[in-house]
């Protein structure tokens, strides 16, 4: 199986401070990789390199076999913890925007039949993330969870091969977070996505990922003066194996009393997902 993203001996240094050292990693197609680690361990820096927001000091990153482009592009979508959506556009406008960028290079706007087609496509995606009712609202009128749903829809309309998530659910309340985990799992199963997610929440990493990778500094003494960077210290395959497109058989049969807020199937009462089924 050839890797979608391949990272070979990457180092990242700022001035003489080493942030990351000797990172080598192969990410399989359709994997859902969760990057965990203490704060300041460089996991977000690593994600920024995958995004081409920063370049590695040494080493090489390839994506689909080709060197990573020097700037962000439509092949890699992203959802940040904050500021992911555009405050001046409505929910619908935020999602249509990706199609307008693609099809209207000069005006950046679509009109007439093309616009209606783009809006229909965007509405479908909004329904899939449970925002069908909110298309005319502005992001500031949405709750944090709804904003992140919107950010997901907005990223997915560009049909990226790789979706990068930078602590996307870190600022959400636990209940909302469980709902959006269900959505995230559904989107990953349904769409041809490889996901790399940075999180500081271990349970989130294990409940969503197919693979959990821990970044850590092997030496972290103040007297080192930044001469040692973080590297990959653990690399778990999550068991039982999650396979994209094959939602896991329900544990509910084994544990009937359980009130897991994130089941899939006909019994769920998640309003957002119900909207999606319509």
């Amino acid at each position: 199986m050839s890797a979608v993203i391949s990272v070979k001996d990457v180092w990242k240094e700022y001035d003489d401070k080493v942030v990351l050292e000797q990172i080598s990693l192969e990410i399989a197609p359709r994997a859902f990789v969760a990057l965990v680690g203490p704060s300041g361990c460089g996991k977000t820096t690593f994600l920024r390199m995958l995004l081409s927001e920063e370049a590695p000091t040494r080493g090489a990153i390839t994506i689909g076999g080709a060197p990573l482009p020097a700037e962000p592009g439509a092949d890699r979508g992203v959802v940040f913890q904050r500021y992911s959506v555009f405050p001046h556009l409505t929910v619908l406008g935020n999602v249509v925007l990706g199609l307008e960028f693609k099809d209207a290079p000069i005006l950046g706007r679509l009109f007439g039949a093309k616009r209606r087609a783009a809006e229909d496509e965007a509405r479908e995606l909004l329904a899939a993330v449970g925002l069908g009712e909110a298309e005319n609202k502005y992001p500031a009128q949405l709750s944090g969870g709804m904003q992140q749903r919107l950010a997901l829809a907005q990223a997915l309309i560009a049909k990226p091969k790789v979706l990068l998530l930078d602590e996307p659910f870190g600022a959400l309340d636990p209940g909302i977070r469980a709902e959006i985990h269900t959505l995230m799992r559904k989107l990953w199963h349904e769409r041809p996505l490889t996901v790399v997610m940075v999180t500081h929440d271990l349970s989130e990493a294990f409940s969503l990922g197919t693979r959990v990778i821990a970044f850590e500094r092997r030496r972290n003494e103040p007297s080192d003066g930044g001469r040692y960077g973080a590297t990959i210290t653990r690399d778990f395959e999550v068991w039982p194996k999650r396979i994209a497109g094959e939602p896991r058989p329900q544990k509910k049969k084994l544990m009937p009393g359980r009130d897991d807020p994130a089941p899939s199937g006909s019994l769920r009462d998640d309003p957002a997902i119900e909207g999606a089924a319509l």
Binding site: V78, F80, F86, F101, I106
Partner: peptide, 27 residues
């Protein structure tokens, strides 16, 4: 402007010109 917005627009495939007229100018 939050740098995330400019990155986000680029991941949606926007050119510099499109970022100016659809993201920066209206804001």
């Amino acid at each position: 402007m939050p740098v995330q917005q400019l990155i986000k627009a680029q991941t949606l495939g926007a050119s510099t010109w499109q970022i100016i007229i659809r993201v920066v100018l209206p804001q």
